[in-house]
């Protein structure tokens, strides 16, 4: 925050010089008027500089901090890592970079498997979200305007309620003594409860449930712009519904499919809460390993290296999403 203030003042001062000369000529009086005058001439700089500086300080700088610590060694001290740059003796500066943490991640099968497992779980969840979300989005688009608004509101509403409590709701449904097992036993379908909570299955359910709106909304936004007359034309020309879907509808909704899939895949890969609450200790995902490495093992360098590698894994999908976003806002 301090940084922003200083730059604002700098911008004001610079333009102030020009302002003062002008001011002397027309004698426009009070301090307030002069201040407003100054603000007017440099407001564009201020508009860009304030959020820009905020992001440089609180987004970019922390990222480099993680990079720096990932290249350090863990030591038993405060802070628990070796410094990057050190005065060895009079006037000699030593830069210490170690890649041990990354080598460690590569050689230890636990980490490699956890990364692969996270990607597997988030990929399958993305496909499941798409299979469930696509017909729902299509159904919403094809309904009458009033009904459409009600359904949209219903899709958005869970998004505004607590994410944590929606995951918690599934703990109650999937537990051994939970609602689903009790119902199945009562119906006489099973005799013994099926173990669902603390398995990979419950993690899939949790991810699909909480991320479904992220799939439906981009799909809806894309389909809303679809030209329905094209579908009717295809039907008039004798195309069967399945053919129309595969050759007309599906190709036209690909941008929506990609946007929705990325919005599910990227955060799900680094997910911490769902594997922890619904997977218990049985499902290893990288977000959970990172958190535990940092809090329980207090190994900052390894935790930082885990974060850097996770970022490398996700950088392509993230750039793809940014590309789509910027294309969207340009058109």
């Amino acid at each position: 925050m301090g940084g922003c203030g200083v730059s604002e003042l700098g911008a004001l001062k610079r333009s102030g010089v020009e302002q003062v000369t002008e001011m002397a000529e027309n004698q426009s009086g009070s301090l307030m008027a002069r201040l407003a005058e100054k603000l007017q001439s440099s407001w564009k700089t201020v508009v860009v500089a304030v959020p820009f500086l905020w992001l440089l300080i609180f987004f970019l700088a922390p990222f480099f901090m993680v990079l720096k610590i990932s290249l350090a060694e863990s030591v038993f001290a405060q802070p628990p890592y070796t410094p990057l740059v050190e005065w060895v003796s009079e006037g000699i500066l030593a830069i210490r970079i170690v890649f041990d943490n990354f080598v460690f991640l590569w050689e230890d099968n636990l980490y490699l498997n956890t990364y692969l497992n996270s990607i597997k779980i988030s990929s399958i969840s993305t496909v499941l979200c798409l299979l469930v979300g696509y017909p729902i989005a299509y159904g919403i688009v094809r309904s009458s305007p009033t009904v459409r608004n009600i359904f949209l509101l219903m899709v958005i509403l869970p998004f505004w309620t607590s994410f944590l409590l929606r995951v918690y709701a599934w703990m109650g449904l999937l537990a051994d003594q939970g609602t689903i097992n009790s119902l199945l036993i009562w119906l006489g379908i099973i005799d013994e409860p099926i173990r669902m909570l603390y398995t990979e299955f419950s993690v899939y359910v949790g991810i699909v449930y909480t991320y479904l709106p992220f799939m439906i909304l981009p799909l809806y936004a894309n389909m809303e712009k679809l030209d329905i007359s094209l579908l009717e034309a295809a039907a008039d020309l004798g195309a069967k519904p399945a053919v129309t879907f595969l050759t007309v509808t599906l190709p036209m909704t690909i941008p929506g499919i990609i946007a929705g899939s990325l919005l599910v895949f990227i955060p799900a890969t680094g997910e911490y809460v769902i594997p922890d609450l619904l997977g218990g200790g049985n499902v290893q995902m990288i977000g959970r390993v990172l958190y535990n490495e940092f809090t329980a093992n207090t190994d900052w360098p390894v935790a930082s290296a885990v974060a850097i590698v996770l970022l490398l894994v996700l950088v392509l999908p993230m750039m793809l999403y940014q590309h789509i976003q910027s294309k969207e806002s340009d058109s």
Partner: peptide, 14 residues
Amino acid sequence: VMPEVITGLSLLLF
């Protein structure tokens, strides 16, 4: 789109 664990860790270290 940044995973929350990365944002959280980087800000804490910072």
